[in-house]
Design a protein around this nucleic acid. Structure first.
Ligand SMILES: NC(=O)c1ccc[n+]([C@@H]2O[C@H](COP(=O)([O-])OP(=O)(O)OC[C@H]3O[C@@H](n4cnc5c(N)ncnc54)[C@H](O)[C@@H]3O)[C@@H](O)[C@H]2O)c1
Ligand SMILES: NC(=O)c1ccc[n+]([C@@H]2O[C@H](COP(=O)([O-])OP(=O)(O)OC[C@H]3O[C@@H](n4cnc5c(N)ncnc54)[C@H](O)[C@@H]3O)[C@@H](O)[C@H]2O)c1
Lengths: 250, 250
DNA sequence: ACCGGTTTGTTCTCACGTTCACAAACTCCT
DNA sequence: AGGAGTTTGTGAACGTGAGAACAAACCGGT
């Protein structure tokens, strides 16, 4: 059902969101779907640059990013005309333009709240740094964790949130607490001045206008896979792999 | 820009995917966007049930799930007519119907490959179990990790993949290895018979027809937030918080 | 200077997804 | 039994996104 290279249903355009859908303000309007793909292009371009490629066609870049080349060209056209007809795109130049458009030419300071299993993994993740983000503080409510160092940063009290946000001008917060605490933590983050939140807890967060929330939900992803898996099993006549987990209806 | 309660752009409808878009086979066709929301409804219903609620209206459930109530009703209508006009939905009954539709009335066996920072967190995550999944094996290539126990399961050699998949009839695999190894691991998983993959590595995986891939990409999520954050800063006149990370263009 | 080959930027069309609005259907009360 | 009030299920209108197709623009060679 899914084709090679263009293989994924996966992340950004959230059907759970009831929202505008294009992003206008200073520059031109950029469709939300395009915004969600820009980071993918950026990554593909970085990989090409690392491989020593200096120029690439929309076809090549599209293949590397796993999208249709027409879609890629249309996406890029929202940013401007950075290619050369008959030639293609200059990898380094385009990479910079996309990075600038996304806003990751400088680092964004980020706080992580909830340094448990997941918080530790996030704190240790080096991919942040190279992609435009800098973790400036790790906060946790549990007194037991206080003082422990993770990836060179001490775990601090959640009560230090306000001063940390003010000091580093933090705009982005990550919530990695249990679901029960997520809304409360979110409220505190917003009150402290954070206007973008990445939520790992399995809850719907309510936030005031002007605050963006994105969620990463592992169980949802797996359940979507399970749904398709079940359909595949049914398509095979029901005698398939997950027959024990799937009852045939039709 | 985003409204309370319906706050998120967040996950499932991936603009990186060039794909059909409705899911037909045994039962009726269900739009992909709807499939992506069913797990959210399921979670909201579980929360309601835990709170002792036995009946709810589409309005209430929609609020709990963070979506428009018309959208909710239309989504549910794809599954059948499980509500009662003038009354609403029976929480427990609807919960079961959705769980059955998704295919999580029984547990799906899952293997995790790459037990590093992230793999450890995933292995320790209890939310899996309660949502229809059972981790049956942890695999890692590094000999150094061999034998270590995580959450009651031993870390086994990646070479045991085929036998594990065969033994437990595993259909779903999780890739938590470095990006460089992801495609190779993915190929092995597919060859072993896995037909659904959840990928945490920042790479585009190429898979044959019939295999589903979903990706969870933290950096992409953060970059999307950064984009909007930058726009907010520009909207405020450029003198805003992240002025150092955002140049005003006009 | 011109011509063939190549690749972008864009237009046009179609499919998908969201939302409104309302008739059908149910409950409860009189 | 009937009517008022409530809530579902869905038809229709609108907006957004995807992809095919093509004209405009560029390069290199002659
Ligand atoms: N571990 C995973 O792989 C995984 C996967 C998907 C989702 N999640 C979700 O991510 C969240 C964290 O998961 P985890 O496994 O790290 O849990 P965890 O219990 O290991 O860690 C949670 C941490 O949050 C801290 N905390 C609790 N209340 C707090 C508060 N009010 N303020 C600040 N900190 C607080 C706790 O002290 C603890 O350190 C959970 O919501 C979980 O459902 C985890
Ligand atoms: N840690 C995070 O919070 C985080 C966040 C986002 C994305 N990621 C991505 O998730 C992946 C894992 O991250 P991590 O921090 O756990 O990395 P890690 O280096 O801690 O762990 C990777 C593990 O994979 C194993 N491995 C390497 N090659 C393998 C192979 N061919 N077969 C089987 N196992 C192999 C290694 O032995 C190691 O145990 C990376 O691609 C990373 O970019 C991690």
């Amino acid at each position: 059902m899914r084709a090679t290279g263009a293989a994924t249903p996966g992340s950004p355009l959230d059907p759970t969101a009831s929202v505008p859908a294009t992003v206008a303000v200073g520059g031109a309007a950029i469709p939300e779907a395009t915004v969600a793909r820009l980071p993918v292009y950026l990554r593909a371009l970085t990989a090409l640059a690392d491989a020593g490629t200096t120029t690439c066609s929309s076809e090549e870049l599209a293949a590397a990013a796993g999208v249709n080349s027409a879609k890629l060209r249309k996406d890029l056209s929202y940013l401007g005309s950075y290619g050369t007809r008959g030639v293609g795109y200059d990898v380094e130049y385009l990479r910079y333009q996309i990075a600038r458009e996304i806003g990751v030419t400088q680092d964004w300071p980020v706080v992580i709240v909830g340094i448990g299993n997941l918080g530790h993994a996030l704190a240790n993740y080096s991919g942040f740094r190279s992609r435009g983000f800098r973790i400036v503080a790790l906060l946790d409510a549990a007194a037991g964790r206080r003082g422990e160092e993770v990836a060179g940063l001490p775990i601090r009290s959640f009560d230090e949130l306000e001063s940390v946000v003010a000091e580093h001008r933090v705009a982005i917060g990550v919530v990695a607490t249990p679901a029960a605490a997520a809304q409360e933590v979110c409220d505190r983050l917003v009150a402290a001045g954070v206007t973008s939140i990445l939520n790992f807890a399995p809850t719907v967060l309510a936030v005031p206008e002007g605050v963006d929330v994105r969620k990463v939900d592992l169980s949802i992803e797996l359940q979507i896979l399970a749904f398709h898996e079940q359909r595949k099993a049914q398509a095979e006549g029901g005698a398939a792999r997950a027959a024990d987990a799937a009852e045939v209806i039709a």
